[in-house]
């Protein structure tokens, strides 16, 4: 159950020795109440460390985030590997406050630190034949539990269409609350796509592949009727087992948790044009 155990460790952003200096960003969402740091770090879906919400906070200490590198493969002029410290210095770190909506109908507001994924993609020089991008997460039984009962064939894979990946809102994130990402939140580097359900935002990335066709993505492959490739937040397209019209705000008092879900998680003005002419009920 959520909230059971895991309260021995009580990290707060103030205690953290390491900080990640950020500059303000015009892509940040103003006027939102931030989810407390404790909740962001103790209510996680990160199946590599167990399927329960409290498991990642309890088990992610196993993850070694140095040395770390991200391999760039596929339809690019030249395949290359970026060291994490190179990536950290590639562009100024921006603070981006984004809504985060999980497909399980709960939501948070998280102050990420990172820069647009497009900045890295431009460095990678993809060929015109690159139509999609696939993200591969770490799958290492030395560092992770990789539980069999999750039903996932590791590694975890996610993907975006090229125009989605190039959208300035799509973030390559390295931190939150002005400090490096806690392991359970996908350290040392992850993707954040704020208008899509959370599982699209792959954690602890080790490989980025540029491909010609729609790539394999973990949840879509496992249960295509429940999790679409696009998985844009859409209150009008219910999950077969529960409604997506409302969401539970994590960290809010119980009587204030329920709130309506917004189309594209509130980012419709910026991203709706990407899907012009598409039937978002069918192509969910």
């Amino acid at each position: 159950m959520a909230g059971e155990g895991g309260r021995l460790m009580h990290p707060s952003p103030v205690d953290a020795a390491e900080t990640l200096a950020t500059v303000p960003s015009r892509y940040s969402t103003p006027g939102l109440k931030l989810t407390p740091f404790y909740d962001i770090t103790h209510y996680n879906n990160f199946y590599e460390f167990g399927v329960q919400k409290g498991d990642p906070a309890a088990n992610a200490w196993r993850l070694k985030t140095r040395p770390w590198s991200v391999k760039i493969e596929g339809e690019v002029k030249k395949e290359q590997t970026f060291d994490i410290d190179t990536l950290l210095k590639l562009r100024p770190m921006e603070q981006r406050v984004y809504r985060f909506r999980c497909v399980e109908a709960w939501s948070m507001v998280i102050p990420w630190a990172g820069y647009s994924l497009s900045e890295l993609i431009n460095e990678c020089q993809p060929k015109p034949s690159a139509k999609y991008v696939q993200f591969i997460s770490l799958a290492d039984s030395k560092d992770e539990l990789l539980p069999w009962n999750a039903g996932i064939s590791w590694p975890y894979k996610e993907g975006l269409r090229m125009d989605e990946a190039m959208h300035p809102l799509t973030l390559l994130a390295f931190g939150l609350y002005g400090q490096p990402l806690p392991n359970q939140d996908g350290a040392p580097v992850r993707i954040v796509v704020p208008w899509k359900y959370g599982f699209k935002s792959a954690k602890s990335i080790v490989k980025i592949r540029f491909v010609k066709h729609q790539p394999e993505t973990t949840w879509n492959d496992m249960a295509p009727g429940e999790y679409g490739f696009y998985s844009n937040v859409n209150p009008n397209r219910d999950h077969p087992r529960w409604s997506q019209k409302t969401e539970r705000v994590i960290g809010a008092p119980i009587w204030k948790q329920l709130q309506p879900t917004l189309m594209f998680n509130g980012y419709g003005d910026q991203v709706a044009s990407l899907y012009k002419g598409m039937n978002l009920i069918r192509d969910y």
Binding site: G3, P36, Y38, R248, G251, I254
Partner: peptide, 24 residues
Amino acid sequence: RLYLSATTDPIALGPDPTHTVTFF
């Protein structure tokens, strides 16, 4: 726990109190 979460300890019922109460 409900009383605590309304007064001194916001996470007395965990980060997702609705879920906690439902499963409980």
